[in-house]
Amino acid sequence: MEWHAPWDIRIAMDLFLGGLGVGVFLIAVLLNVYDKERNSKLSVMGSYLAPLLVGGGVLFLLSELGRPERFLSTLYNFNPQSVTSWGGLFQIGFMVIALIYAWQNFKGKTNGSTFRTLQGLGVLFAILVGVYHGLLLASLGRPLWAGGMIIALFLGSSLFGGMSLLVILRELGISIGVPAQVRSEAAAASSDKEFNFTMLFFTISAVELVLVLGWQFALYRSSADTLAAVNSMMESYGGLWIGIVIIAGLLIPLLGSLLTLVKDKSSEMSKGMALTLSALVLVGSFAFKHIVIMAGQGALPLIF
C-alpha cells in the first residue's frame, strides 16, 4: 500500500500565510508604538494586510479539510485537550480584532483608547496564533515536531517573514487605502527618531539562525525515532534545507544586514539589497515551514 502524507502543501500555506499575517501585525504595531508619525503609512498597510493573510491561510486550511462545511463545529464541539480546537478559537479571535483594527486605521481613528485596546488585544491574539502554529505540530508528538523548539522556530520565522513583507512594501512605496491625512503626516515627520529596520532585520535573522541550527543539532543528539526523522528529512530535502532555508533564507540576510550595520550602524540597507534580502527571507520562511511539515509526517517504524 502506497504511503501518502496526510497533510499536503495547503497546510504549509496556511501556516506560512497565517505566520506572515501575525508577523506583519506585530511589526506594524511595533512601528506604530515606536514612532507613530513617521511609520504610520506602513503601520496602516500592515493592519490591512494582517487579516487578509491570516484569512488567506485559513482558506487553504479549509480547502484541506475533508468536511470544510463542519469547520465551525470546532467551536461547539470544542475539545479543550486539542490544540487544533484552541487554534480555531485564536484565529477567529484574531481575525475579528484585526478587521476592526484595520477599519479604525482606515477611518483614521488612531488616537482613542479603543484603538489602543484593539492594539493590545491584537498583539495578544497575534502571539497566540503565532504560538499555536508551532504548538499544533508539537502537540502531535511526531519525532521531528516534538519538543518546544518548534514553537519558537515557527514564531521567529513568522516575525521575520512579516517584517520582510513590510520592508518590501516600504521600499516599493506601496500605500493602498491609506488615508490622505496619514500620508501627509508621514511626509512631514521629523527624522531624529527613525526606526532602524536593518537592525531589527539583523537581530531576527541572527536569533532565527541560531534557533534553527540549535534545533537541528539537538535533533541529531536525540532518540532513535528523532534521529531517524531528521535523517529522513535531510535525505529528502537536504539540498533545499541547506540552500534555501539556511543559506538563502537566513545566512545571506544576516550577512547582508550585518554588512550595512558595520558601515554605519544607523543606516538602512540600500533599496536593492532590502528588496533582495526580504524576498529571500520570504522564500526561506516558506521553504522552512513546508519542509518541516512534510518531513515530519514521514512513516514511523513500528517497534516493540
Partner: peptide
C-alpha cells in the same frame, strides 16, 4: 493521542 488531538471530539 487521537482523542486528545481531535478538535471536535
Amino acid at each position: 493521542a487521537c482523542v486528545k488531538a481531535c478538535p471536535t471530539k
